[in-house]
Nucleic acid binder design. Structure first.
Lengths: 316, 316
DNA sequence: GCGCTTTACGCTGCGCGTAAGTATC
DNA sequence: GATACTTACGCGCAGCGTAAAGCGC
C-alpha cells in the first residue's frame, strides 16, 4: 500500500466537515470511496484517525495532530503548484534580455512597455552590453535571450529573425545629399564621418562598406552613443552610417537618411536564446511581442528622412 | 488529470539524480514510468521542468523553483507521517491516567515504571483525584483512562477488570485480633476506627459493611491519606478498613491485616476509558501492563499480614 | 554504434460507483 | 424506522512493465 494525496485530501475533508457524507459531496466522490480511503490511510499509518459511530465522527488525538500538520502541508503544496503555474501563465517570471545600446533604446523600450502592460508580474531586466558579449551572456545563462546581429559561426544559440535592414547614411537636411535617392559608399569619400566606436557591430559593418568601396574614410568623430552621433549629424558636423531602424531613435532630431548602395550592406537583427535550454513561457511570449514590434519598424526600411520634424517627402 | 504524490516523487528523484535511469532504479520502477510521470506533471503544471536531451537532463528555472518548494514539502510530509506512526508504535505519546490516591501509590508507580522502561517516549500524566471525579475526567476527555471502583450505573465508560479483592481490617501486630484468621464486621464494634474521609470510595464500602453488621462505629480519626491511616494503625491508635492491596502500600509499616467477613465486601478495581472514543495505542499497551501488575498483586488476596516486617505466617 | 530518453502497447490492479448490510438514535 | 457509515462487488481506467523506436555523442 502506498500513501497518496487522495488519502490526505480525503482525511482532511472528513476532518473538516465532521462527517463522511458532506465531505464526499464536497470532493465529488461517492461516500464509500471516502470510507475506503480513510480506512486505507489508517491502515497505512497504523493509527485510528477518527472515532466514528454511524452518528458521530470526530478526530482522535492522533487524527488531530495529523490534521494540523497535513493541512498546512497541503496548503503549501497548493501554493507551490500555484506559483509554478504563475510562471506558465506569465503572471510571474523574469526575463533578462541582453541587447546592444542601439537596440536597447529603439525597439526594446516599446516592446517592454507593451509586454509589461499585458504581463505586469513579469520582471524584465535589460542588460545593455556590447554585441560581442551578448552571445556569451545567453550561452552562459546570464541572460535568457539576446538581441543583435551575430556571425553565423556562433554556436550554442538558436536564432529568430526579427528584422532585416540595410545601412543608411544619416545627414543634416541641409547636406548636399538631401536630394539624392540613394548614396553610394564611394560618395562618403572626403566626408567627415561620425562613427561609432569599434566595439559596435554597426561600426564593423561600416568599415566593411568603406573598404569595399575602395575608399579610406577616416572618422572625424568617434562616439559610443547613437544619440551623440545624431546630435552631431544634426549640427551638420558630418554624416553617419547607421541601420535604418535608427530612424526611430532619430525622430527627435532634424536629420535625414539615405540608403547606402554599392554595396547594399544588410544586417539581420535576430533574437537569440541558448540552444538546448528551454525558453520560459515569458520569454516565448516576449519574443512574439518583439517580433511584432520589429515588423512595425521594418516598413521604415527605405524611408529616407525624419518626416515628423521635416515634413518633406522624398521619392522612395 | 490529477496531481499525485508519485508525480512529485518522480520529479524530485530525477532532479536529484540528474537523469531518469538512475532515478528509476532508485524508485524501483521502470524507467519509462518516470518519463511518463514527469511528462504528466509538466502537462499538469503547464511548464517544462527539465531541459533534456538524451545526454543531459537539467532543471529549468521553473523546475528549480518547484524543486525547492516541493522537496521541503515532501520532507515535511514524511515527518508528519513519521510522527503519527510514532504514536502507533508507542515511541511517542501521552497517557493521562486518573486514579484515586491509594491506587496511585500502590499499583500505578510500578506499572508506570515498567511501561516507561519499554516506551520511554510516552509521557504519563498521573491525575490523582477522588474516585467521584474520575469518571467525569475520563468522559470529558481530561483523562485518557481511569482506575478505581465504580458504580455499575456509571455511563459512557468501558470497563476492564484489573483485580477483585475484599476489604480487610488493618491493625497493629499487638492488637488482640492478631491471632484471628478472619474478622467479622460486628467485631469492629467499639473499636476505635481510623477511617478515610467521605470522599473516598473505600470509606463508602466501609460504611456499608458497618451498617450491614448492625453496628454504629464512629470513626476515631478521619484522614485522607492511606499512609496517614497506616501510621496511626501502626501506633495502635485504632484499626482501619482497607482493601487487601493496601498491603502493598503497608509494607513499610508494622501492621497486619485480616479479611473482613459477614459480609465479605468485595471491590472490583477496573480500568475505564471513555466509550465511543478510541483508545490510543499507548493506552492500550499501558492497560495490558496494568493488568499484569494487578494480577501480580491479586495473590496477595487473603494474605493477612505484612510478612516482610513481621515474618509470621497466618493461615490463609 | 552505444546509451539515454521517448513512444507504443498490453495487462494488471487500484479505486470508483452501485447496491446491500449494519449500527445508532 | 430513518440516517449515516461500512462492506461487497463489478467495472473502467490509470499506471506499470516490456518492447521498439528516436536521438545525441
Amino acid at each position: 500500500m502506498k500513501l497518496a494525496l487522495r488519502h490526505i485530501e480525503a482525511f482532511l475533508a472528513v476532518a473538516e466537515h465532521g462527517n463522511f457524507s458532506t465531505a464526499s459531496r464536497h470532493l465529488h466522490v461517492a461516500q464509500p470511496a471516502l470510507s475506503q480511503a480513510v480506512k486505507d490511510l489508517e491502515a497505512e499509518l497504523g493509527v485510528r484517525l477518527f472515532d466514528r459511530t454511524t452518528r458521530r465522527v470526530e478526530l482522535t488525538a492522533a487524527g488531530l495532530e495529523f490534521q494540523g500538520s497535513t493541512s498546512k502541508i497541503l496548503e503549501d503544496l497548493e501554493h507551490a503548484v500555484e506559483n509554478v503555474r504563475d510562471l506558465a501563465t506569465r503572471r510571474r517570471g523574469r526575463i533578462r534580455v541582453a541587447a546592444p545600446p542601439l537596440l536597447s533604446s529603439v525597439i526594446l523600450p516599446q516592446a517592454i512597455a507593451a509586454f509589461h502592460r499585458d504581463y505586469p508580474g513579469v520582471a524584465i531586466e535589460l542588460i545593455d552590453i556590447g554585441t560581442e558579449e551578448i552571445v556569451a551572456s545567453v550561452v552562459t545563462g546570464k541572460a535568457d535571450c539576446g538581441l543583435g546581429t551575430f556571425s553565423p559561426s556562433e554556436e550554442g544559440i538558436e536564432r529568430t529573425l526579427l528584422m532585416r535592414d540595410n545601412l543608411m547614411m544619416f545627414c543634416s537636411p541641409e547636406h548636399p545629399a538631401h536630394d539624392l535617392t540613394t548614396v553610394a559608399w564611394s560618395e562618403l569619400r572626403d566626408q567627415p564621418l561620425i562613427a561609432l566606436t569599434r566595439t559596435s557591430g554597426i561600426r564593423l559593418l561600416m568599415d566593411i562598406g568603406i573598404e569595399s568601396a575602395g575608399i579610406s574614410a577616416k572618422p572625424a568623430f568617434e562616439v559610443s552613443l547613437i544619440t551623440t552621433a545624431l546630435a552631431l549629424v544634426e549640427a551638420d558636423l558630418g554624416v553617419s552610417v547607421l541601420p535604418s531602424y535608427a530612424l526611430a531613435a532619430a525622430r527627435h532630431y532634424a536629420v535625414i537618411a539615405r540608403p547606402l548602395v554599392d554595396p547594399v550592406i544588410s544586417r539581420d537583427v535576430v533574437l537569440i536564446h541558448a540552444s538546448g535550454r528551454s525558453i520560459s513561457p515569458a520569454v516565448a511570449t516576449f519574443s512574439g511581442v518583439l517580433r511584432s514590434y520589429a515588423q512595425k519598424l521594418t516598413p521604415a526600411q527605405g524611408v529616407a528622412e525624419n518626416s515628423s520634424r521635416k515634413p518633406r517627402t522624398t521619392s522612395s
